[in-house]
Amino acid sequence: MEIHQLEQRPNTETLPLVSVVMATYNGSRYIAQQLESILGQTYPNIEIIISDDASVDHTQEILQNYAKRYENIRLLLHYENVGYVKNFERGIIASTGSLIAPSDQDDIWKPEKITRLVSAINTSDIVYCDSELISAEGEPLGLRLSQIRRFTSFSSVLNFTVGNSAPGHAMLIKRQVAEKALPLLACSSHDFWLGFVATFSNGISYLDEVHVQYRQHENNVCGAFNSKDKTGKKFKRMKQSRQIRQANARIRINAMYEKCPAELQEYKKILRNLSESYQSFSFLRNWNRMLLFFTYREQILAHKHRNTFRKLAYCCKLFFTIQ
């Protein structure tokens, strides 16, 4: 690959530094296209922190070539696999910007993404935008992520009880929130935990603009579809046993209760009651779990595209299972 002179960033003393944090693993097929889209951002004050989780393809070679060309790229190349969440955590710790923009290794960012998010974050702790879905080959699928998940602003810790609509690849996060969220919760996605922590104070705002092309392919860690894309192609997903899912749900709810600040007394009490109801399938705990979901369903299910009947049906289901 041809080596170019180091490219200097312009004088940007008046603009906050944005740390683009990318966690990579065997991403050689798409990573150059994503890096080009990040390097082509109109926002000028960017550092790019890339933490590679012991890739065994050509990912590290590609990253090293880019790091030679651009002085604002910093690599953390690891030779022992720790998993996606911990790998992303390494990138956060190594970053220095007052704002952090998580990045997947296989998407494409539109040029104005960071500029628009910086302008929109205001007093919120996190801002996120919409994404359009593309195929593995980069072809538009004619669908926005907001058509699959309910995108809105979030300000209640209960908004993250059983799910997350604010995707990490579309987020801009204030540094103090990311630091408060450390260590990240290993049994859940990084964006879930970051969003949950953001609701402790200034919450999450939604910018109703598309600034990411979100690539769907069979190796997605997290994808928009459970089984098929718009073309009918089935995607493989890592399937966990029911026992593992339930164990992770118990860990997640208990971690939320422990992390919730004492000053949020009402929410902490609700999370404590939820955590207790998740511990077994006794009749009393099943009843309490279902009742808690009924009582707080508008907050708990705020991220779901569901009408009133379907929300009630979801709550009934919690008598028999945990999510």
Rank of each mutant, 00 (worst) to 15 (best):
A302Q: 06
P261V: 01
C315F: 00
Q41H: 02
F200S: 03
R74K: 09
Y267G: 09
G232F: 03
I93P: 02
G83A: 14
I73V: 12
L76K: 03
S275W: 08
A136N: 04
G27R: 11
G97L: 11
E139P: 08
H58P: 02
N307K: 11
P167S: 05
Q64L: 13
L312P: 00
I134G: 00
I251H: 14
R306T: 01
L145T: 00
Y79L: 07
S55E: 07
H303Y: 10
A136M: 02
I322M: 03
V127P: 00
I48F: 02
A247L: 14
S165D: 06
G83Y: 10
A120D: 02
Y314E: 01
Y30G: 09
D57I: 11
N65M: 13
M171R: 10
P44Y: 04
A302W: 00
N159H: 15
V21H: 06
Y128T: 02
T199F: 04
I270D: 03
F196T: 10
D57C: 08
P10R: 12
R310N: 13
F196V: 12
N122R: 08
R250A: 02
H78N: 14
N159G: 11
R144G: 05
R242H: 04
F160K: 11
D229I: 06
E266Y: 11
F151V: 13
V221N: 11
L158G: 04
E61L: 12
L143H: 04
F151P: 10
V82A: 15
R175S: 11
T42V: 09
S156V: 07
I50L: 03
S119Y: 05
L17D: 07
S156K: 12
T24R: 04
A198M: 01
D106V: 14
R252E: 03
N254D: 10
Y30S: 09
